[in-house]
Simulated scan of single mutants.
Amino acid sequence: MIINYKEMEQQRITGFKGGNGDVLTQNFVDENNKIMMSRLQPGANSGYHKHEGNSEIVYIISGTGHFDYDGVREDVQAGSVHYCPMNHSHAMYNDGDDELVYFAIVPEHMAQR
């Protein structure tokens, strides 16, 4: 399956997960995954949130910023990969003057038996 972001409508979300500013995003979503190509605008951040029932992998394509991961600051730049496992929390911040462009995958995890 090919996911073609060039043919996908872009959405503008203000205050993503309770954060500040705008994120421009294109999302593929099914019952197993959310796969996103997004651009966090300068000075914007996502709200601090916990991953319950899923995890998140974020690959930074361009720009600079940082994550608050379980209360610890992690600086990121192009080529960095941030991983937030299930039952952990994070928020993303764009500290730079340019968009923070990233590709993210949020796999849903089956309930533990």
Rank of each mutant, 00 (worst) to 15 (best):
R73K: 15
G79K: 09
M86T: 12
H88F: 08
Y59W: 14
F67C: 09
C84M: 11
N94D: 10
Y83K: 02
A91E: 11
I60Y: 08
E74N: 09
Y69T: 13
D70S: 03
H88D: 05
I61G: 03
V81G: 00
D68N: 15
V58R: 01
D70N: 15
Q77L: 01
H82G: 12
N94V: 12
C84N: 03
D75S: 11
H88G: 04
H90G: 01
E74D: 08
Y93P: 06
D70I: 01
A91R: 08
V72E: 13
S62Y: 06
Y93K: 04
I61T: 09
Y59V: 14
A91L: 06
P85F: 03
E74M: 10
E74K: 15
Y83N: 02
V58I: 15
Y59K: 14
G79E: 12
D70M: 00
T64M: 05
G79T: 10
V81H: 04
A91P: 07
H82D: 07
V58S: 08
Q77P: 00
H66L: 00
Q77G: 14
S89L: 05
D75Q: 04
G65A: 12
T64I: 14
I60F: 08
D75E: 14
Y93M: 07
V58L: 05
N87D: 15
C84S: 13
A91D: 08
V81L: 12
G71T: 05
G63N: 11
A78Q: 11
G71C: 04
H82V: 12
H82N: 12
N94M: 11
Y83E: 02
G79Y: 10
S80K: 08
D70K: 01
H88P: 07
Y69N: 07
Y93R: 07
S80D: 13
T64P: 00
V76G: 13
E74S: 08
G79H: 11
